[in-house]
Design a protein around this nucleic acid. Structure first.
Lengths: 202, 202
DNA sequence: TCAATGGTGTATGCACTGGCCACATTTGCG
DNA sequence: CGCAAATGTGGCCAGTGCATACACCATTGA
């Protein structure tokens, strides 16, 4: 079912799929957003596209490569989202992570080594964040800006994780607005990351 | 191999294993720490204990329940670790997370609903953190202390994640000492979490 | 002393997965 | 036009989590 009438532009049910690679990441992503759908399965994805289980292997070395591609695409969304509401980036990101948690999980936990695209997306995203810090906090020292950006990025990632895992239990929503406060504090404090503390060991 | 000479008190290779449940979490945890060993498998774990694949199901409803038990035990270690070096808790936690990343991953990503023990361990851990904030920062307002503790906890979780995924690439080690600086900032700032900002939207 | 009982581990089977292979089909380029 | 390369198929294998039915053993109560 639902296999024959959806190939748009190129259309008529042909042997070749048209643009399977792109369709795989798109469908994969929406499958990830599916609420009930347990965990991701390459086969199920293939099935949902009306294609044989081994077809995806023509486009991705293995399942992880596909996941990495999806994650990379996720970062693009995150970057785009930033343009929407400047100023509350932190909150916006936390909400994004909560809404698309499985995708988010991939974005933050897949090793960068899994895909060049993923690594690129990550550095691009971080660069965006640094830019925001420089602009909104007037931070002119680039290294400091990086540190602040990383601190905020970490805060966001951790917050999403804590909320999603239920580690915050009741507090949950009450704590959300605090994320921006934290970010603000992190940004505004000039001395953040004063590197005079020696590395703890190793 | 390595199956016959270790059951201490109850000893001699009997049909019953002695204390399988405990052995499962212990072995499971050390299997998680194994560097090369891909991903966790109940069957492999059973094999390594010289026990049938279905034996673990006598003690845990399913694989997730075992994982949850292991994660809960992980929190105990994290708490114990705190007693070691007061003051640099944040760094210590980040290092713990890095060293035992797969375990850490479980600790922060398994849903609290997976196990009562896990949920309990989490609230206990958070309480510890709050206590530390109250003590070292002299924070007397309990609600504020909670917010600060959560902020630090999130920062730590995020930092571990970013480092492990390789999102920080080169910066990596250079950024580690900054974690404490961030924590310090978060702790010392009085106005953190001023709740006059309205929640961004539902 | 000696069965019944219930806890613990075993054996087996099912549905499913990811990854490989040889093969079929289509497409596009010479 | 024709043929090689790209793409999708189908069958296979090892391995997984989990369910069910069975085997063994330690204790308990008469």
């Amino acid at each position: 079912m639902a296999k024959s009438n959806k190939n748009s532009t190129r259309s008529n049910d042909t042997y070749h799929h048209g643009d399977l690679r792109a369709e795989l990441v798109r469908a994969g992503r929406s499958l990830l957003d599916e609420p009930g759908s347990g965990d991701f399965s390459l086969r199920e994805l293939a099935r949902s596209l009306g294609v044989s289980p081994s077809a995806p292997y023509r486009h991705f070395a293995d399942a992880n490569a596909l996941l990495a591609a999806i994650a990379a695409e996720g970062y693009q969304s995150a970057i785009a989202l930033r343009e929407a509401d400047i100023g509350e980036v932190a909150t916006a990101l936390v909400q994004f992570g909560a809404r698309h948690y499985p995708l988010w999980q991939l974005m933050v936990s897949l090793p960068s080594s899994a895909s060049d695209a993923l690594e690129a997306a990550r550095t691009e995203f971080l660069a965006e964040l640094v830019g925001i810090v420089e602009r909104t906090a007037g931070e002119r020292d680039p290294e400091l800006a990086i540190r602040k950006a990383v601190a905020i990025w970490a805060e966001v990632v951790g917050m999403v994780q804590l909320r999603a895992s239920g580690a915050l239990a009741l507090l949950d929503d009450a704590l959300l607005p605090a994320v921006d406060a934290v970010a603000e504090v992190l940004v505004s404090r000039r001395r953040l990351g004063a590197a005079d503390a020696p590395p703890p060991e190793s």
